[in-house]
């Protein structure tokens, strides 16, 4: 019963947040420079044509009505048309999102892995040299701008050492046959091993960059929670009853520290979306982020606003899913 009411509240909260996001982006698009009326009616026009264009665009209607239209368009997948590509923004995004998703998912997986392992070890051996190094890496990782780190890893691993391929997008050579749009997955599905190797090589540096910058705050959080859990009464009691230390850490402490860390992962996902925009640009990665930056450079705003509103909604969805997973995993939320 309690669970159902929590579920209801959580979903209501999600809807309210999405509405809030939509209101903000609506206001932003209405204040964007480059009045759409003049775009439609042409620069040198009389008042009559301006009025006609205003009516045609529905800009003479009250704001709430305009808002409803705005949301309706979004729901129907009408995100406007890109001036730069002269394609509907939806189509542009549809062809680009797998590149971004592949990069982001891989980056978050790598980030979570190293953050948990290093954070846990640093918490278990707080006075070790390892913990100090972890401290340093954490501080640097939190402070380094990811777009700069991206250029530095290119300098080191491509320009100087020559062990990474040139930053020229998702793959050099022919991409694997399209099944899912994820090159690594498609390469495996079509057994195209050279394409798999080539796409993994291209993923190496951008994933490294994003994994370091998003993993650093996660590692610190993991370490903090782990330290807290290791000091808790049930760990002490477990030790007093002779449970081996490795088992205490892995079986008893880690799951308890993991719960709050997953919330952190959801938060970092939002950060990752922002970071991906810039890292994609540096690596000429043909994803949604590079699309947004290229559109900005061309003063083409419809695609940018679409990316902004969609990423906010994706972020809220990830947050919702995290909370729901908590609900299922944590026995204390069940009755």
């Amino acid at each position: 019963m309690r669970m159902a009411s929590y579920l209801g509240r959580r979903l209501a909260y999600f809807v309210v947040s999405v509405l809030g996001v939509l209101v903000i982006t609506f206001v932003l698009t209405r204040t964007l420079p480059g009045n759409p009326v003049y775009l439609l009616a042409g620069p040198l026009t009389d008042q009559e044509k301006v009025d006609a264009a205003t009516r045609e665009l529905g800009l003479d209607r009250p704001l709430p009505a305009q808002f409803v239209t705005y949301v309706g368009d979004l729901v129907h997948g009408d995100l406007g048309t890109s001036l730069r590509t002269s394609q509907p923004v939806v189509d542009d995004l549809a062809s680009r999102w797998p590149a971004t998703a592949e990069l982001a998912i891989l980056a978050i997986l790598v980030a979570v892995t190293w953050a948990l392992v290093v954070g846990t070890l640093a918490a278990v051996f707080p006075r070790s040299v390892f913990a100090r190094v972890a401290d340093l890496v954490g501080s640097l990782g939190v402070s380094v701008p990811e777009f700069w780190l991206a250029t530095v890893v290119i300098l080191v691993f491509f320009t100087s050492l020559g062990i990474a391929p040139a930053p020229i997008g998702r793959i050099s050579g022919t991409p694997p046959g399209t099944v899912t749009g994820f090159y690594t997955v498609d390469a495996v599905l079509t057994a195209d091993w050279s394409a798999l190797r080539a796409s993994l090589a291209q993923l190496l540096l951008p994933v490294l960059t994003l994994a370091l910058t998003t993993g650093a705050p996660m590692m610190r959080t993991a370490r903090e929670f782990m330290t807290g859990v290791l000091g808790s009464p049930y760990i002490r009691a477990g030790r007093a009853l002779g449970i081996p230390p490795a088992r205490l850490v892995v079986r008893h402490a880690l799951p308890n520290a993991l719960l709050p860390v997953t919330t952190m992962v959801a938060t970092m996902f939002g950060y990752l979306l922002g970071g991906t925009v810039m890292v994609e640009f540096v690596f000429a990665w043909p994803g949604v982020g590079k699309y947004a930056v290229d559109s900005i450079t061309a003063s083409d705003y419809a695609p940018v606003m679409a990316v902004v509103v969609l990423s906010a909604i994706v972020y809220l969805l990830v947050y919702l899913v995290t909370d729901l997973v908590h609900l299922v995993v944590d026995p204390r939320s069940r009755i």
Partner: peptide, 19 residues
């Protein structure tokens, strides 16, 4: 520990792993 000497503590709910 556990097989020759064992212990119980105060605040017993907290001495059990919640998960």
């Amino acid at each position: 520990r556990g097989s020759q000497v064992a212990a119980i503590f105060q605040n017993p709910v907290a001495t059990l792993n919640p998960l």
